[in-house]
Amino acid sequence: MKVIPAIDIIDGKAVRLTKGDYNQKTEYSDSPLAVAKEFEQAGITNLHLVDLDGAKAQKPQNLSILDSITSETNLDVDFGGGVKSNESLEAVFKAGAKQITAGSIAAKDKPLVKGWLKEFGAERIVLGADVINEQIAISGWQEDSGLELFSFLEEYIDAGAQYCICTDVSKDGMLQGPAIDLYKRILARFPALRLIASGGVAELSDLEALSQIGVYGTIVGKAYYEGRISLEELAAFNS
């Protein structure tokens, strides 16, 4: 299992939100680049970089930070936040991202995202499935898309998707444990899917539990930033 630390960016700073609420924001003193370098030095290979300004603006706003991280580290970066057009997708790849995460846009414009899968390949396009009560949530989790999770996944897997970051919104930033049962059901239905769990990881035992059920990767944010899991412990899980 890959452990994938997250850096969320607002105004050029590394932050963490609770349940995606911009009003429940914690800022961290180190710059995103400094944090990324710490991850790399510990032996971590992947990074989940989220442009929260871009998500609001509907267009990436922190490409210079992405470029600095990909230029000054060897981390494989997946980037999300505001990637909603061919132009923004190409700009993100030009800035060095190995993958982009297609979240709300995958619910709102399926032909566009399916076209990306066909043109760029499944290795570069990660499906983002943010879930509330097994319904896909969009627009910063403020809106119900009307799409049911399993049907959504099936449609995109049929279109070639191989990677999916699934976030249980009720768990995000709460440090109360991940949605193990939900991930078990997803993997039972789609065993070939490279499922990346996101939300709720609070301690080392959560990573152990996720590894045991066979997720491809797990995104870790708040648990690391608040000192509940060390860098060394994160790096030890990478495989």
Rank of each mutant, 00 (worst) to 15 (best):
G160E: 03
A161W: 01
G217Q: 11
R185M: 02
A106E: 14
S211Y: 02
W116H: 10
V220N: 08
I136E: 05
L175G: 03
I138N: 05
A159H: 11
L187G: 03
G140F: 15
S170H: 15
S139P: 05
K118Y: 01
F152V: 10
S145N: 09
D144N: 05
G121L: 12
Q212H: 14
R185N: 08
V131Q: 09
W116C: 02
D206I: 10
V201L: 05
Y163A: 01
G128S: 07
I186N: 01
G214D: 07
E123A: 10
L182C: 05
V113N: 09
L147M: 14
G217R: 07
E203Q: 14
E143Q: 14
R194A: 08
G199R: 07
D172L: 04
A209R: 14
A106N: 05
A137V: 07
Q176I: 15
L182Y: 11
F150N: 09
G200T: 06
E148Y: 04
A159R: 07
S211W: 11
E143N: 07
P111G: 08
N133H: 15
Y216P: 08
A137H: 12
E203W: 02
I157F: 02
V201S: 01
E123V: 10
V169F: 02
P191K: 06
D172Y: 04
E154S: 04
D168I: 08
C166G: 10
R194H: 14
E143M: 07
V220T: 02
G146Y: 01
S170P: 08
A107P: 05
E208I: 14
Y216V: 13
I157Q: 04
E123Y: 00
G115N: 14
C164M: 00
D206G: 05
A179W: 00
D130P: 05
R124Y: 11
S151G: 10
L195P: 12
L204S: 09
I165V: 09
G115H: 06
L204Q: 09
V113M: 05
R189S: 12
E154Y: 02
I180C: 11
Y163V: 03
Q135L: 13
T218M: 00
T167M: 05
A188D: 10
G128K: 09
S145L: 05
Y183D: 08
Q135V: 00
L187C: 12
A179I: 04
A107C: 02
L147Q: 15
Q162A: 05
K110D: 13
A137P: 10
L112K: 05
G146T: 09
A122K: 11
P111S: 04
I132A: 12
G199P: 13
W141P: 07
I157M: 08
Q142P: 03
E148W: 01
